Computed example of a mutant assay.
Amino acid sequence: MSKIALITGITGQDGSYLAELLLGKGYEVHGVIRRASTFNTHRIDHLYEDPHGVGVKLHLHYGDLSDGVRLVTLLNEIAPDEVYNLAAQSHVRVSFDEPEHTADTTGTGTVRLLEAIRASKVRPKFYQASTSELYGATPPPQDEETPFYPRSPYAAAKLYSYWITKNYREAYDMFAVNGILFNHESPRRGETFVTRKITRAVAAIKAGQQEHLYMGNIDSIRDWGYAAEYVEGMWRMLQVDEPEDFVLATGDGITVRDFLEVSFAHAGLNWEDHIKYDPRYLRPTEVDALIGDPSKAKAKLGWVPTISGRELAKLMVVADIEALKHGDKWIDKVQLASWDAS
């Protein structure tokens, strides 16, 4: 009998890759989406294809982390074996403008979902999407034992989610884990996030559609990996015998400046000819360096990332150039064998 998974945030980058992974493993996948006047399912539309005629195993349900009663209803109806909480207001800079909304969605939403699990008749394994932003001002390398020092409303909200997940694990004997994921990107990354902002601009500049890209702090260091690999780590965290928290990272940090240089160079451009500084993109409090130590995940989960931040920049540039050639249509999947990493 197929396992059943419930994913909040299924229409986002991580949710789409995770749904793809689980469907490939034979799961029946259910996703929670918010009601809106327009569709926002482009990242998962291809998952409704059924070339083998075995029946589509992807199901979407309207719901919201602000509605605890609806969450209880969905859990009782779906009876999932695994729940992945990927829903959040996840943009760090925006969290300074909308701190209350961020706290409610990213922080309180987690406890609503945990309470819904406790109130329902099912006992699924629970994955909480945590973040390297928890470390904030704490110097790298950062692992599961590194002290937290959040530097944004987003990180503070995620800190609450982290600790409430541990609390429910210990207080109610739940199989509940935190995946502390360092930055992970892909061609499915939202267009307002810095990596995708860069690679989309490279494609537009290469095509002669724009001339400059405006940036804030380009000296910050991040540990960038490939999102499609990181969702495998999420799944593995729920397959072990005992619940534990894990860091997922590449262990290799590069600056935003490095990402710019590689991205522009892969398109035959000099980044310095096109970048302009704009203080509007600075955070009120900056996070200088995030570099993870994934040793525990390697040892206990057998999870090892293969794509570095520099390779990721090239992959995303290729995808955005191809998307622009096709009328700026989003490319839902990049076959790694088809892109030139030279």
Rank of each mutant, 00 (worst) to 15 (best):
M1C: 08
M1W: 02
G12E: 08
Y17E: 10
Y17V: 06
L23I: 12
G24T: 01
K25T: 05
K25C: 06
G31P: 12
I33E: 01
R35V: 08
N40W: 13
T41V: 13
T41P: 02
I44R: 04
H46V: 04
H46A: 09
G53I: 03
V54Q: 15
V54C: 11
L58E: 10
S66D: 13
D67F: 07
V69S: 12
V69W: 11
R70S: 06
L75M: 06
E77D: 14
A79C: 13
V83Q: 07
V83M: 12
N85M: 13
L86A: 08
A88N: 02
H91M: 14
V92M: 02
S95V: 12
S95Q: 04
F96H: 09
D97F: 12
D97T: 14
E98H: 13
H101Q: 13
T105L: 15
T105H: 07
T105C: 11
T106F: 07
G109P: 04
I117G: 01
I117F: 02
P124R: 01
A129K: 02
E133S: 15
Q142V: 12
T146C: 10
P147N: 06
P150M: 07
P153A: 02
A156N: 03
A157N: 07
K158M: 09
Y160M: 10
S161H: 01
W163L: 15
K166C: 04
Y172M: 04
F175I: 09
G179E: 02
L181W: 00
N183R: 11
E191I: 04
V194S: 10
I198D: 05
T199I: 03
A201S: 15
A204T: 09
E211S: 11
H212G: 03
Y214M: 09
Y214F: 13
G216W: 01
D219C: 10
E229A: 01
E229R: 00
V231N: 00
Q239S: 11
P243Q: 09
P243K: 11
P243D: 08
F246L: 01
V247Q: 00
A249C: 09
V256I: 14
V256S: 09
D258N: 14
V262C: 10
A265F: 09
H266F: 10
A267H: 07
L269P: 05
W271E: 01
E272L: 01
P279W: 05
P284F: 04
T285F: 09
E286H: 03
V287W: 01
A289P: 13
I291T: 07
I291K: 02
A297Y: 00
K298S: 01
K298Y: 00
A299W: 03
V304R: 00
T306S: 11
L312H: 11
M316F: 09
A319M: 09
I321T: 14
I321P: 13
A323N: 08
G327E: 06
G327K: 10
K329V: 15
W330K: 14
V334I: 15
Q335T: 10
